[in-house]
Design a protein around this nucleic acid. Structure first.
Length: 603
DNA sequence: TAGAGCGAG
DNA sequence: AACACTCGCTCTA
């Protein structure tokens, strides 16, 4: 059942979007080959523990496969050159560099792990279409299948998208030396699934009309993203094994085992339909760590574990720069029945005043750390009855909310309290043509004067208001430093044992030290009290017009217009969304946000 | 809002 | 190959 297409050629059509999926070839191996070009000509394997996690194509000729035992791999290829890949630092750095390049097309980019990205080039395609002869558009790279009929105009759009994909691949190769694959389609699902059809260093486009047939070529339902192990199990229990099976089974049957929404979703996926948006990747919504072990049954031991976790976690939070306002404690009890991940957790709000911002650096006082430990153990007590014996196999700690999702203006205040961010903004202004100005969404975003209310209400964006949702998505972007500095890493990509973690932490600290302007001269320019809480400083600003937490040099470097606005804001904090009290309810009225032209908040 | 479950890499 | 770790999304009470 091929989807019927209209012959309309306007924007309001059936397949309006153009999505590129980017996949870096044998990522770890390429990082090593780029670093040491002599490795390019030999079979290379990346080793973690005693397995080869990936290999270059030279090695694959010998039959080396992902996650093969080292012994086995060496049998197949005695000459296999092995490089230890347990320290992910350089891989993360490379991943971030690539991400930065992808941002230069000024389209939403969503990072998926270290070696995959989605780019929504819909708007860019639309732009290019205006200055293109629609009768003479060529496709770049492979096409899954020649079209047998006209469609809504998506063929031309996807052809242009394929050209963009070529540009992307060329630029990444020219600047960093990485070869990558791309899949081009009108949605994320198809773009991702079509991507590996021609590997390595190549690209494939699929037109919507071939979606159903293409999906039917997939062996297992498991190959569809969002269908994981559990869903596969359930489907198999209904004799649905292949994607083709899923295409044929009735929604009614599916509804017996899945929610109505999920049932419909599964059916759509099976025929290649997917309307999930590409979400601009930004800072994580939670920062956490966990530690597993054989067993811990003593309270004091638990306390030590949490203490250690907290220390590491505070490093990460400091690097992130945002002030956490919620803390979660997780644990896993030793369960006779199943070792599997039966976690339990408790969380609570924490006072932002536990954290201090001094000279742009987030810190926690000793007493603040003690208070945090008290909170942690209180949450722990909610999970465990200390009067009874207990056996734990895992403890975890995570900050799950951050103080920053405030009004447009107050988010600017956050910028000024974090010199890394301010620098990134200044960079933006100084070299406007920079290739990594990820925050310029002028073409895609609604005119700023129409979107004034950036109040708390948007923390939970209403899916019914696409405009607002767009805005949220666009506000979630990385600053230049986020991308360039290896110290700003997505915690989710951290997968090291504790020793490695310590090493990385050191690296992060070092690189941060380098990236910050002064070494350590706290409170020189202003009479700021290091123990000021954010609330305190917000009310007690001095230093002429700018409060103590603002670097005066930075302030002076800002455009006059913005200086004026900020001064007004500081004089009248209560009406301007200053971070006086984060408990202030949703009283924010719409207000001018011209200042947002200069800042794009982290989140 | 908190907590659990699922999915991804 | 299975497991460990971290993060995001969604559903439910």
């Amino acid at each position: 059942m091929e989807s019927s297409c209209s012959t309309f050629n306007d924007i309001d059509n059936e397949h309006p979007k153009s999505i590129i999926h980017i996949d870096i070839d044998c990522f770890y191996a390429q990082v090593e080959m780029v670093r040491s070009p002599e490795l390019c000509t030999v079979p290379l394997g990346i080793q973690q523990k005693n397995i080869v996690v990936t290999s270059n194509y030279e090695a694959r000729n010998y039959g080396i496969q992902k996650c093969m035992l080292v012994t086995e791999a060496l049998k197949l290829c005695p000459n296999l050159k092995l490089v230890n890949g347990e320290d992910l630092h350089d891989y993360r750095a490379a991943s971030n560099k690539i991400f930065a390049i992808l941002q230069s097309w000024k389209c939403p980019v969503e990072k998926l792990g270290m070696d995959e990205n989605f780019i929504d080039v819909t708007n860019l395609v639309q732009e290019r279409l205006k200055s293109t002869d629609v009768n003479n558009i060529t496709l770049s790279g492979h096409l899954y299948e020649e079209p047998s009929m006209e469609c809504c105009g998506c063929h031309n759009r996807l052809k242009i998208a394929s050209q963009i994909a070529s540009e992307v691949r060329k630029k990444v190769f020219d600047e960093l030396g990485f070869t990558i694959c791309a899949g081009i389609a009108h949605n994320k699902l198809l773009a991702k699934l079509i991507c590996p059809l021609h590997k390595p260093n190549d690209q494939t486009t699929i037109f919507p009309q071939h979606a159903v047939n293409f999906m039917a070529t997939l062996q297992s339902v498991r190959s569809i993203p969002t269908i994981g192990s559990k869903t596969t199990e359930t489907l198999i229990s209904q004799k649905v094994l292949s994607v083709s099976d899923l295409q044929q089974v009735s929604v009614e049957v599916l509804k017996k085992h899945f929610s109505s929404d999920m049932a419909v979703r599964l059916k759509k996926l099976s025929i290649g339909e997917d309307n999930t948006p590409v979400k601009q990747t930004g800072k994580p919504q939670s920062i956490g760590l966990e530690d597993s072990f054989k067993t811990v049954s003593v309270k004091s031991e638990v306390e030590e574990k949490f203490e250690a976790l907290l220390q590491r976690l505070l490093v990460l939070v400091r690097e992130d720069g945002r002030i956490p306002v919620s803390l979660r404690v997780t644990l896993r009890k030793k369960d006779a029945k199943r070792l599997s991940s039966h976690r339990e957790s408790r969380q609570c709000q924490i006072s932002p005043s536990l954290f201090t911002i001094a000279s742009g650096t987030l810190t926690v006082t000793a007493s603040g750390q003690q208070k945090l430990m008290t909170i942690i153990m209180r949450l722990f007590n909610k999970l465990i009855d200390l009067n009874k014996p207990f056996h734990l196999t895992l403890v975890g700690l995570a900050f799950t909310k951050f103080q920053e999702r405030m009004t447009g203006r107050s988010s600017i205040v956050n910028y000024l309290m974090n010199d890394i961010s301010v620098q990134s903004v200044l960079n933006l202004q100084n070299d406007g043509d920079t290739s990594v100005s990820s925050m310029d969404y002028s073409a895609a975003s609604p005119s700023s004067s129409t979107t004034t209310d950036l109040s708390d209400a948007e923390v939970e964006p209403s899916p019914k208001k696409p405009k607002k949702v767009n805005w949220i998505a666009k506000r979630r972007c990385l600053s230049k430093e986020d991308i360039a500095s290896p110290s700003k890493l997505k915690v989710g990509e951290l997968r090291l044992n504790s020793k490695e973690l310590e090493k990385v932490s050191e690296l992060r600290l070092n690189s941060r030290d380098r990236s910050l302007t002064p070494r350590a001269s706290p409170a020189k320019e202003c009479l700021s009290d290091a123990s000021d809480t954010m609330n305190d400083v917000a009310e007690g600003g001095n230093c002429d017009d700018c409060p103590s937490y603002v670097d005066k040099e930075v302030f002076n470097a800002l455009p006059d217009e913005m200086q004026q606005e900020l001064k007004t804001m500081w004089k009248n904090p209560s009406s301007s969304g200053m971070p006086v009290q984060r408990s202030s309810p949703r009283t924010n009225k719409a207000k001018p946000n011209t200042i947002l032209k200069y800042f794009v908040p982290h989140k």
